[in-house]
């Protein structure tokens, strides 16, 4: 299962993802048959009315307004997190890194906490929690980048340590606010945010999220050779004619931007960005040319499945999708590592 049939892996996973989304449209408290889904999808595409127009029938509303946006958001989030995770692991040359490592997670939750408990950014309108967490995520990762560059020497270990330190600082500020605010509803809201959910999916946000994620995946895919070289380190890169420091900044900012958007629309979902890259490496090796598209597809497949399960496991309740992802993913991953000879560090 190495290089030569990686193209077919891409085709297979694309097929799986499309089929999965199709059948997932039928699952939930109201079950729909394959025919109904097909007809509703077809009508929605054919119809001159926008899909969000009212009074198009209950089946239309279930498919086009409730389930389809959720599934697309799940797919986009999975793909984006998996690709950003792969890229961040290459940038910091550390297999334990994930998209949230550069302070993005704690920055996002600090933003959310500030808006929920102190009403920061309320003038942004109904989406103000999301906007605040995007702002928090992006500005904290900028801060981490700037701090780690202060002495002018690029050093990935310092970048990681700075990220962790800033993470700690931000989460203690968040905890401080939460502890003293003594606001039960606020705590509920922030918990929901931190565990991730696709319930808030809307076509208006998807119009931004999907292009951002697609552009990000294509951009990083064009960078596959530089990402490979990053794993060899700065010195080897110079002898191969590449100066990594400028690429590193661009990649980190791109990732922070994409993850910030994902946090804005779906909250925090762990595990995907850390583990999906490793699972795909088991099958394709470390070359990013195949690793990136397959990671995107597998991330999407996993989150779509997780979203369906989170909707149908307990009738009438949306379980936070982050819980499902970890419950589902962790044993699967342990099983794979136990079966395959896969070395994370390469130094065994």
């Amino acid at each position: 299962m190495k290089k030569l049939n990686s193209y077919s892996w891409v085709m297979i996973f694309t097929g799986i993802l499309l089929a999965e989304i199709f059948f997932a449209l039928g699952m939930g408290s109201v079950k729909l048959s394959g025919n109904e889904i097909y007809e509703t999808l077809f009508q929605g595409i054919q119809s001159n009315m926008p899909v969000t127009a009212p009074r198009q029938g209950p089946v239309h509303d279930i498919v086009w307004l409730l389930r389809f946006p959720r599934l697309l958001l799940a797919a986009a989030t999975g793909a984006g997190l998996a690709v950003c995770g792969t890229v961040i692991q290459a940038v910091v040359k550390n297999p334990l890194a994930d998209p949230y490592i550069l302070g993005i997670s704690s920055g996002a939750s600090l933003g959310a906490v500030l808006s929920i408990f102190l009403g920061a950014g309320i003038f942004f309108g109904p989406d103000f929690i999301g906007i605040c967490s995007f702002a928090g995520a992006f500005s904290i990762s900028l801060l981490v980048l700037i701090i780690s560059q202060m002495d002018g020497k690029p050093d990935t270990t310092k970048l990681l340590l700075t990220g962790m330190a800033v993470n700690m600082a931000c989460s203690s500020i968040s905890s401080f606010i939460v502890y003293f605010a003594n606001d039960k509803d606020g705590i509920q809201t922030i918990l929901f945010w931190l565990m991730g959910s696709f319930a808030g999916a809307q076509w208006s946000t998807l119009q931004i999220i999907i292009p951002v994620v697609c552009f990000g995946i294509i951009f990083f895919w064009t960078q596959n050779r530089t990402l490979d070289i990053m794993l060899l380190g700065d010195h080897t890169a110079v002898t191969l004619g590449t100066d990594l420091s400028k690429y590193r900044h661009v990649y980190l900012l791109m990732s922070a931007f994409i993850v910030g958007f994902l946090v804005y629309s779906a909250g925090m979902i762990g595990f995907v960005g850390l583990i999906i890259p490793h699972i795909v490496r088991i099958f394709t090796g470390t070359g990013h040319r195949y690793l990136l598209p397959l990671a995107a597809l597998l991330g999407a497949v996993l989150l779509v499945a997780a979203d369906v399960i989170s909707r149908i496991l307990i009738t009438g309740t949306d379980i936070p999708v982050g819980i499902i992802v970890s419950l589902l993913g962790a044993p699967g991953f342990v099983f794979l590592t136990a079966k395959k000879s896969y070395s994370f560090g390469g130094k065994n």
Binding site: D228, L240, T242, R281, G287
Partner: peptide, 18 residues
Amino acid sequence: SYAFDFLVEDIVLLGRTP
């Protein structure tokens, strides 16, 4: 020594980068 595992072929191919 590299932090991630590569195929031998992938490492040699990177010699074509310039």
